Simulated assay, not measured.
Amino acid sequence: MSESTDLLTGILGARSTGAEESTLTRLSELCGGLPLALRIIGNRLLSRPDWDAAQLAVRLADEERRLEQFKAGDLKFANAFGMSYEQLADSTRRVFRNLAVVPGRDFDAALTAVAGGMPIEDAWDALDELVDLGLLQDSAGGRYRFHELVRLFARDRLQDEESAAGRQALTERVASWLLRMATMSGRWFEPGYGCPDRPDPDLTAQSSGEEADWWLRGHVDNWVGAMRTSVGDRPSPVLDCAESMHWFSERWVHGAHWHEVSRSERRPRPPSATWRSRRPG
């Protein structure tokens, strides 16, 4: 982040001498290193000599209002990405804003297809378009992620263009898929389960425990996030998921998330729920 701090310091010029280095570093972090965001924040401070840089950092730390702070004169962060957003096909715009509900840091084409409500082939096309327009970042292994400020922009688009009921249904659909994928993957390692006989047709097929292991490790932020947000609404799927991790956890002893997973496993199961921690018969 030192290059971003240097860029912000250069924009501020003599104004930077009144700010502590830790404050400028924090501002650079909240800008995510994006030159446009750094320029906007620098211009805001330059045009308001009485503003305290530390107070601006406090404002930016409020995720609910962060995008509102990225405007200075004719410069507005949301406008820059809004132009790219308007160039997208309707189906790709839907994918872009729907991906804001993904609980983890990144996602693949299969999860994108779930969020977008589309075949995986169409999800790949949408991801390519989003990367080409700079609205997503791609990485090795077919993984994609938002820049944090772009994720906030996508979330705002979702709130503006989708009803509360639609957002709730979307969140539940994504969380349900993640919980069921994690449960199926975890049970590869549980005696009496292994390869599922009849997996749900919308889940990604796995042909070996190695594939299941790879999925669980690669998507840990997502399925643990789904557990975290679903405890009150879907206690039985959360419990199923937590219980299915018992044997897999021995392969990943030092995972930082197991304490949270074990807390979910100890929650009381609703009386009407069926106990499914062992294969029937």
Rank of each mutant, 00 (worst) to 15 (best):
S4G: 11
S4A: 14
T5G: 15
L8A: 11
L12V: 04
T17F: 13
T17A: 14
G18Y: 07
G18L: 05
S22P: 07
L30H: 11
G32C: 07
G33R: 08
P35C: 03
R39D: 05
I41F: 01
N43T: 14
R44H: 12
R48Q: 14
P49M: 00
D50M: 07
D52Q: 15
A54Y: 02
L56Q: 02
L60Q: 08
A61Y: 04
D62V: 06
E64Y: 03
R66I: 01
L67K: 04
Q69G: 09
Q69H: 10
Q69Y: 10
F77Q: 10
A78Q: 15
N79H: 14
N79M: 15
A80S: 08
E86I: 03
D90S: 13
F96D: 09
R97I: 13
N98E: 13
L99F: 02
P103Y: 00
R105F: 00
D106N: 05
D106R: 02
D106F: 00
F107N: 03
A109Y: 06
A110C: 15
T112C: 14
A113F: 06
M118V: 15
M118A: 12
I120N: 15
D122P: 10
A126F: 13
L127I: 00
D128I: 08
L130V: 04
D132Y: 11
D132Q: 11
G134N: 04
D138R: 06
S139F: 10
F146T: 01
H147K: 13
L149Y: 02
V150D: 15
R157Y: 08
L158K: 07
Q159G: 14
D160F: 11
E161T: 13
E162Y: 02
E162T: 04
A164N: 06
A182M: 09
G186T: 07
P191V: 02
G192C: 01
Y193S: 07
G194K: 02
C195R: 09
R198M: 06
P199T: 13
D202W: 07
D202P: 08
L203M: 00
A205P: 10
S207N: 04
S208W: 06
G209H: 08
G209E: 03
A212D: 03
L216M: 06
V220E: 10
N222H: 00
W223P: 05
G225Y: 12
A226Y: 00
A226H: 04
T229R: 14
S236Y: 06
V238M: 01
L239H: 10
C241R: 04
E243N: 11
E243H: 11
S244D: 01
M245N: 09
H254A: 15
G255Q: 02
H259G: 15
S262W: 10
R263M: 14
S264T: 04
S264L: 01
E265V: 06
P268E: 07
P271M: 12
P271N: 08
S272M: 13
W275G: 11
R279I: 01
